[in-house]
Amino acid sequence: MAVGVEVVASAASASVELRGAPPARTPHELASLLRVAGMPEAGLRATAMWLVSGRRESPHTRIAYVRDVSWWVSWCAARGCVPATATTAAADLYIAALKESGLARASIGRRIAAVSSWYTYLVREQCAAINPFEGAERPRLDTQASRTRGLSRDQVTAILRHAADHESARTYALLWLMFATAGRISSILDARIEQLSQDRGHQVLDLAIKGGQVKRFAIPPAALAAVQRYLEEREHPRDGLLFVSRTGRRLGQSYAWKLVNRVARAAGVTHAISPHSFRHSAITIALGDGRPLHVVQDFAGHADPRTTRRYDRARDSLDRSPAYELAAMVTPEQDQEHPQRH
């Protein structure tokens, strides 16, 4: 029995790197990888159709699925396993390899979900006999807290103050929108000038969110002023991308990562952060300030309130306990007049 366990563990060990740069970043690269892994042409055509259907209409969502599927295909290719005929045993070994690689449970769950969705489509199109990931055990997610390195209220203020005094108008506007909308960086970098408008007295910005949908965000005066100042420097363009480089190109996410860390360090933040830290901090601060969960959930665009709850750092605070208000509702008058009487 022990020997059998060792064999399985050895087979699960990843000779293929399962972290870092993904094997494929585009549909074309994924197609090339599938050919190397022995996928028939019918499977390639079905994969192309899968990538543009369902929830993958958004270009960014599509690329995310490409990356997640490419890890599995690369793993198969290294072992001479044809994805179209992969077995449940192969899927289980792959999941074991993902766990051994040290990936976060959320990342493992996302990769499994992406590959399972792909196989469901392949089976429907008769390009695979089974979905080897159907019913596979996925790692339990930590629903208690988000692992993103966040920022305190004072740190966000310090970063914005530093940006206002020492950075470009573009940087200041970008940081403000990242926090004020709690938007994902990909959505903000895709934002267009013509999506700025008014709605019932509110200044708003329409941003593309997950699933190819569009969500309307209120833009507070300070954030709007920062955006207007930036657009004034660009001589009031009427349309096109909101944030562009000096040559007019879309800013990349790698640029945003370097930018937020540089500005944060200059403002006194000692730990590394990411663009997502601003989204994380906005949600956390809103919850800590006592905003109702359903309001913050809608603000964050979470489909499941349990996701929003992960950001609630003060969930166990006794100061927020409803016990006091509940007791006040039912305490007899004489006990209210003499609270210390026993």
Rank of each mutant, 00 (worst) to 15 (best):
V3R: 11
V8M: 09
S10V: 09
S10K: 13
A11R: 04
S13M: 09
V16T: 14
E17L: 15
L18T: 08
A21M: 09
L34P: 12
G38I: 04
M39K: 00
A42G: 14
A42D: 15
L44Y: 09
E57L: 02
R62P: 03
A64H: 00
Y65K: 00
D68P: 09
A77S: 14
A77P: 05
C81S: 07
A89T: 08
A90Y: 08
Y94S: 06
A97E: 04
A97W: 03
K99W: 08
G102V: 10
R105D: 10
A106K: 13
G109H: 03
Y119T: 00
V123E: 03
Q126W: 02
C127E: 09
C127A: 04
C127S: 05
I130G: 02
P132M: 13
F133D: 15
G135C: 07
A136F: 00
P139F: 01
L141V: 13
L141Q: 14
T143K: 14
Q144E: 13
T148V: 15
T148K: 08
R149D: 14
R153M: 04
D154T: 08
T157K: 01
I159M: 12
L160A: 07
E167I: 01
E167H: 10
S168V: 01
M178P: 00
R184W: 05
Q195V: 00
D199C: 05
D199S: 13
L205A: 12
L205F: 06
L205T: 11
D206M: 10
A208D: 14
P220M: 01
A223N: 02
A225F: 04
R229Y: 00
L231F: 03
E233G: 13
H236N: 15
P237T: 09
D239W: 07
G240P: 01
V244M: 10
R246I: 11
R249H: 15
R250K: 15
L251A: 12
L251M: 10
L251P: 05
G252C: 03
Q253L: 04
S254H: 14
S254T: 15
A256C: 11
K258Q: 15
K258D: 15
L259H: 03
N261H: 05
A264Q: 10
A266D: 10
A267Q: 08
A267D: 14
T270H: 10
H271T: 05
A272E: 12
H280M: 07
T284C: 12
G288M: 09
R291V: 14
D298I: 05
P305T: 03
R309I: 06
R309M: 14
D312C: 12
R313E: 06
R315S: 14
S317G: 13
S317T: 11
L318G: 10
R320C: 03
S321I: 14
P322K: 01
A323C: 02
E325Y: 08
E325F: 06
A327W: 12
A328T: 04
M329E: 15
V330K: 00
V330A: 09
E333G: 07
Q334D: 12
D335T: 02
D335K: 02
E337S: 06
H338P: 00
H338I: 09
Q340M: 08
